[in-house]
Structures are given as C-alpha cells and as structure tokens.
Design a protein around this nucleic acid. Sequence first.
DNA 1: TTGTATGCGTTATCAG
DNA 2: CTGATAACGCATACAA
Lengths: 364, 364
Amino acid sequence: MSSDPDPASPRRRATIADVARAAGVSPSTASVVFSGKAPTARATRERVLAAAAELGYAGPDPRAASLRRGRSGIVAVALEEHLRAAFLDPIKTATMDGLTDGLAELGAGVLLLRDDPEAGAGAPTLATAPIDAAVLIGCSGRMLQTLEAVHARGLPVVVIEGDAGDDVPRMELDNGEAAAQIARHLRALGHRDVAVVTLPFDGAKVRGDAAPERIATITTPVTKARLTPTLEVFPDARVVSAGDSLIDEGLIAGRTLFADRRTRPTAVIAQSDLLAAGVIRAAEEAGLRVPEDISVAGFDGIAVDGLGGHVLTTAVQPAVEKGRAAGDAVARMLAGEQAVSIRFTCTFREGTTTGPAPAERSVP
Amino acid sequence: MSSDPDPASPRRRATIADVARAAGVSPSTASVVFSGKAPTARATRERVLAAAAELGYAGPDPRAASLRRGRSGIVAVALEEHLRAAFLDPIKTATMDGLTDGLAELGAGVLLLRDDPEAGAGAPTLATAPIDAAVLIGCSGRMLQTLEAVHARGLPVVVIEGDAGDDVPRMELDNGEAAAQIARHLRALGHRDVAVVTLPFDGAKVRGDAAPERIATITTPVTKARLTPTLEVFPDARVVSAGDSLIDEGLIAGRTLFADRRTRPTAVIAQSDLLAAGVIRAAEEAGLRVPEDISVAGFDGIAVDGLGGHVLTTAVQPAVEKGRAAGDAVARMLAGEQAVSIRFTCTFREGTTTGPAPAERSVP
DNA sequence: TTGTATGCGTTATCAG
DNA sequence: CTGATAACGCATACAA
C-alpha cells in the first residue's frame, strides 16, 4: 500500500507539484515545508511529508532550485597542478582545510577543478561549472586566461598565492620579510657559511646547484620572494634547487651539501619545512648532529610527519587562516560587499634545529 | 561604442535570448552556436558571437543548462573525515587522483563533501547538492544514513573501501589475502618473533599495546581484515595499535617495540607504508640495521616521502586504479548500465626491508 | 498561514 | 541549416 507508485506518473520522478497535489496543498506551501523559509502548520507539514514519502520524493531538485535562486552553493577551487600534486603539499592541504571551513559557514561546497582548459570534452571548467565563485590557488600563466571567463560571468574571484590583477583580491604572505628574519637569525648565531635549498625555480623542476645567472631567471614567485632577501643577508650562499617540496628532495639536496666535509656549510636555509626535514635526515646520515654541527631552518611551520623529535626553526605561515580568509572574502563578495587583498604575516619560530655556529671550522 | 550596454536592459545580465535578438537569430540557434551540438553557418556563428561580445555575454548559464539537461556534470566525493585528514593519506590521495581522472573522461567535476549531515545551515550535502552521482570513500556508520537520501533521489552511488549494502557497487581490496602473503613471507624467512603495528581500531584512535580482548572489538574494517590473517600465521604476535596512518605514529610504535632489546621482535608487520617508515626510523634510531637486525613490512605500496633509500617490502594496492574504477562505475551507471563491485588484488613486493631472521637471539 | 501566478535561462524536438 | 515551441522543477512576490 505504501510502496505503490503514483498511478498518474508511471515512471517519471515525482516533483514537488506532485507532492503538493497528493497532499492537497499548493506547490508553494509544499516548497515552504521543505525549505523551512516560512512557518507552516504542523498538520500541513505532516501531510506534505507523508505525501512525499508515499511518492518517493526526496526533496527539491537542487538543479531547479539553483536556477531559481541564482545560486548553486558551490565554489570552485582551481589548482594549477594535478590534484595529486596539490594535495601532497601540506600547505595547500591546510589552505584547503581553512577554505572549506570558511566556505562551509557560508554554506558552500568545494568543487575541485584542475586548471586545464582543454580537459575532457564537456568537463566542467571555471567557465561552465555551476559555481557561485572561484578561488584560484597559485594562479599564474594560463590560469589568467581562464580567469577572464569567470570575470566575464561576473563571479567573485579570490586568488591565493598568486597575482591576477589589481581588481582581484589576493591572499598572500610576507615571504620576503619572513625569509629575511630567518637569515638574520642565523647570522646572529654566528653563521657565515650558509647554503640555501630552494623550491623549484619554475615549471621545469630541475634540481641542483644554481649559478647566479640561473637565479636571475626564477619565475616562481614564492621561490624568488624567499630567496632574494636571503641572498641579501648571505650574498655568497650556495644555492641548491630542489625539484619539489618533498622530504626526499631535501634529502638529495642535503646529501649534495654534505658530500664534502671541507665545503659543507654550518647552516642550511630550506625554503620549506619538508625540504628542511630532508636536509636534517641527510645531516644525520652524514653523522652530523643538529644543531650542534649544523643548523637547519625551514619555512611554513607545518607539522612535518617523519621529523622525529626535532622542532624546526621556521617561519610559521598561517596557511589555514589564509584559506579561511579566502573563504570569507568569497562570502563577502557574494554578499555584494567589496573584498580586499590581505597580506599575512609569518611568525618566526625558533626551534631546536638551529644553534650557534660551531667555533672550529675545517676540521678534516 | 563597444562598451555601451544594451539600453533595453540597464543592469540585468544578458541572456542567450538577448544575444539571439541582438544577432537577429532565434534563441535555439544561438544555443547551438554555443553548444556546438549542431552545425551552424559560419556567418551566423560570427554574428552571434559578436552580439555576445557586445552584450558581455559569457556563455550559457550552467545552472539553467543543468536544469534543462538534467545533468550538472558534478559528482560528489564524500569523505567521512575532515578533508585535511583525508588528503593526508597518500592512499586516499591516489584514489582521488584516479577518481578524478576517471570522472574527467566522463566530463564530470568533483565536489568535495564532508559527511557531516548537520554542517553549516544550507551547506550542500549529498542530499542537496546539484550532483549527478556520488562516490563514498570509507563509508561506514552514519554515512549510511546520508546514503539513503542519495538513493532516494535515484542517483548512482559507488563505495570505495566500505559497505553500503548489496545493491551499491563497491571497490574493495583483498586485504586478507595480501596480509596473509606478507606474514607467510616473513615466516618463510625464519621469523618467529613478530610484532604488528596496526591502523586504528576504531574512531577513538587510541594507541598502544592491545590485548586479545581488545582486538576482538575492532570495528575498522580495514584494520580487522589485515590483522586477522596475520594473527593466523603468527598467533603470538605482539599487537601495537597506531593512532593514525602516519610516519610519526609508526615511530612511536616502533620505539615501544624496540625499547627493550630482550623483547624486541625480529620482524615488524606494519599495516601501512607510512607506519612502516616510522618503524624503520625507530629501528635506525635504536641502532638496528634494516633488514639485517630487523625486518619491516608495510602495506599499500605508496611512494613514501622520507624513507630514504629503502624499498619497502609491502603489498602494493592499486589505489589509483581503485579510484579510476569507481569513476568508471559511476560513468556506467550514469549511462544506465549496471555497475558491479570489484575486488582488487594487491601485489606482494619484496623490497630491501625484509630479510632472514637473525640467527642469534637474546644478545644483551 | 496558504494559494496563485510567473519566470529563472536553457535546450530538445521537430518542422521548415 | 534555422526557427518556433515547450518544458526542465522550483521559489518567490503578492494576494487572499
């Protein structure tokens, strides 16, 4: 008796109109029962709900609702990399975390999009997905093109760690100041012979020692922003580029640095905590004690899995807050307000991985 | 001249109808120009495109299109954990990777959803988001409730690493067989004194030694599936539970195991590669050589960042394929076909972290 | 509190 | 190749 479908609509899915009819109320009343946007009499509500159950109606069709409302409740997050790469990076992960939180308050879901304009035919893009706004992470290059489409549709856009022009709010870091602080910290500890392990210079992700000419060609904004002030403090620093922000990449770079006891530095500045963790492993592997023999500093302030008991000296970036702020900015823009760019400040954290420069050098 | 908006519609956003009117064609023709679903005369197309540019029309509104088409091009991926936790797990990351690939072929985007039914008011859920299908990862407990709503809406559902009933296709692993294989491998190498470092027993994520009574209460399916056959091979194995699948958790567990030289095992079976990596670090910390003094096996076959030069002996699970298969299953179901559950086979991989049991025991 | 009427912006169909 | 027509399923202003 209760599983028999509506005889009038043999196989068609029930709509709110069907439910209303079955319950003997108007469609608008039924709508209100489901949305709760207006008070309804208890009896009415129960009648509607009963009719819905009877007809197997599972609530308003979100597609129709979003057309009518003009909102889909979905915000796109566009990443320039393959999704796997993006979520391998703890900072991006944390940012996403804050972002989803910030958007959840707004009542929005997150649609993951790769910034591949020519993806599978019909694949949703920033231009074709039913989104209310977009957040671009690490915006650069061709993403700017995609951006135009979004802009044209009048959708709010926020950029994290990137630059999409003046009229697009961005959430950025004071990379330069933070990097300078780390460098000064090491100099104050007496270090003079310092090496830098950097993030990739560009999309090529080549690794190894980098000559000054090469350094001038860096295109990745973050790498450049963190390296420049470091070199101002330590102009003669040896610069080794990592292929990616990974522990094993830091390990490789570290092995390079510690291969020759006579040329090894007394301190290593890594441009990410993951790299620093790898450098520390390389140091331990080489029989060096951290920080007695070698100081290592990182950048990011993430909880590095696999670092053991060390507490990294690093610049703690508010990654989660960055994401949350992006979410808030989206919310504000969706509410018609103007959102502004925010520059976040990193907090220097002195951990257990940096210490005074060893007094004696060149002990073969 | 070209930036002057349509005088007839002062601030309203242009629609395809406006464009058609301006171009002197019918709406359906304009629609076809944008969708490309039918051939159009070159002149017509150019006229329409010009009108669109003139009016600042950026293409069809995806919301309206999805209502009309009955498809939004979005597939939900529901995770039971906080997003951060989910993406911290390389296996889930890899699965997501395959999934997004599989879905991209289908032309679908991925909407990230936490399985929090009572999230922020208005937050999209499996029941209220404009999705075409859903993939549940690690489905258990209350997610089954959520599932009902999706089911009621007649949306295809696929489950990865979970059980949502017989009529829901699932992508699962032969955890038991793979675990047994690892255990037999170690036994064949002569190991008799083996310890197991397990994944969490349940949501509580308590860590430490586990008594047999406790083992009987394990609710996490994966943990149980991998532990049972292990204990059949090594009934007396010491069982230590980790709080999570993390290197540092493995490190902690490893320190417990290696604290007392007299009771330490000759081999450790970790239920994930990350845990195994931590155990290896603990071993090295304790001055033990891997595999000469201690053998360590993992599970998953991921590329562990931070493992240095070791190659883990492990069961390689086809995580990416699992995700891709889920994507394919969704595609099939969306095409009206029946999708079936798939049981994936892990591949045993002998690495450099397991070796013959050391001949002498109890060397103080 | 409930009902009535209207259109949100598209696209599929089918005839021309 | 193009045009007329009719939904798609709902939520809101407004009247009752």
